[in-house]
Design a binder for these strands. Structure first.
Lengths: 148, 148
DNA sequence: CTGACACTTCAAGTGCACTTGAAGTCAAGG
DNA sequence: CCTTGACTTCAAGTGCACTTGAAGTGTCAG
C-alpha cells in the first residue's frame, strides 16, 4: 500500500467521484501535490478531509460554507482529532435546529395542513422563530427564513 | 374580499412568487381557471394546496414527488381535512428517518470525524441502514444511499 | 513495443427549482 | 383617452454541485 493516493484511489476509498474531487480542488476545498508528469497525489490525511466535506454536506452546509470552515484548520501541520472536533462543534447547533424544525413539522401534520390556518394568521408553523439550517431552494415563508 | 384570487393575491398570501406559481402550474402541481381575458383565477382552497407544496418541500420531497402525492387527492370535490391528513401521513416516516440520521450524525461528531475510522472499515456512520429522506445532490457513500 | 487503463485539462452539459426579461394585453382611476 | 400596474406567454438565465465528453499523456503488464 502506497504512502500517497492517486485520485482514483482516493475516489474509491471515499466514495466521492474523481470528477467531484477535481471540482473540490478547483473550489479550493482540497489540494494536491503533483507527480513529475502532473498526476495528483494525496496524503492519506486527505481522506479525513474529504470525509469532513461529505459529512458537512449532509448537515446542510454549502461547499462555500465548508470551504470557510476548512480555512480555519491549521496550515502548518496535519490536523489532529481536536482540530476536526473544533470545526464540527458548530454543526451541533445547526443539527439541533434542523431536528427541532422537523419535529415541529411532524407534530403539526394534520393539524396545520388540514385546518384553515394556512391563511397565515394564527398558524404556529408560520413563525417558528428558528433559522433553518438546510439547503432549501424552494419557496419559503410558511416555515420562514430562507436557506441561511 | 373576492371569492377567487388573482395570481398576485395568491402569491402575496402564500409567500410563493407568482413566477413559481406559474411554474407549478406548468408542472401540473396546481391548476387555474381563466377569466375571459386569460388571467388566472384561483379558488380559495388553492391556498391550502400551495401550503402543502411548501411544507412537502421542507420535508424534502421533490416537485415530482409532490405532484404524485397531489394526484391522489379526489378530483370530484374540494379536498377535506381528512384528505390532506391522509397525504401527509406518509411524511411522518420520512421525517422520523431524517431526524434519526441527524441524531446519529450529531452523536458521532468528534467521534467519527476525529478518529481514523473514515477509511470505512468499522465506522458506524458508514452503514446506518436507513434511507435518507433528503434532497442531497452531494456525493454520498459515507452515510450511504443517494437522494431517495 | 503494444494494449489497456488511469490520468490530465478544458468546455459544455445536467437536474432541480426557479427567476428574469422581452414584448405585449388587460383593468381601473383621473 | 391616458397612464399605471397587474397580468399574459415564451425563451433564456441563474445557482448549486457536479458529470460528461473530447483530445491528449502517463503507467504498466505481457
Amino acid at each position: 500500500m502506497h504512502e500517497e493516493l492517486a485520485i482514483g484511489e482516493l475516489a474509491r476509498r471515499s466514495g466521492v467521484a474523481a470528477s467531484a474531487l477535481r471540482f473540490y480542488e478547483e473550489r479550493g476545498l482540497i489540494h494536491s501535490l503533483r507527480t513529475a508528469s502532473g498526476h495528483r497525489r494525496y496524503p492519506r490525511a486527505m481522506l479525513r478531509r474529504v470525509a469532513f466535506i461529505v459529512f458537512a454536506q449532509r448537515v446542510g452546509l454549502t461547499l462555500e460554507e465548508i470551504g470557510a470552515e476548512l480555512a480555519r484548520l491549521p496550515r502548518d501541520r496535519v490536523p489532529q482529532k481536536a482540530d476536526w472536533q473544533r470545526l464540527s462543534a458548530s454543526w451541533r447547533q445547526r443539527i439541533d435546529e434542523r431536528i427541532a424544525e422537523l419535529e415541529q413539522l411532524r407534530d403539526s401534520l394534520g393539524e396545520c395542513i388540514g385546518c384553515g390556518c394556512l391563511s397565515m394568521k394564527q398558524c404556529r408553523l408560520v413563525n417558528p422563530g428558528d433559522r433553518l439550517g438546510e439547503r432549501a431552494s424552494g419557496p419559503v415563508r410558511w416555515l420562514q427564513g430562507r436557506r441561511s
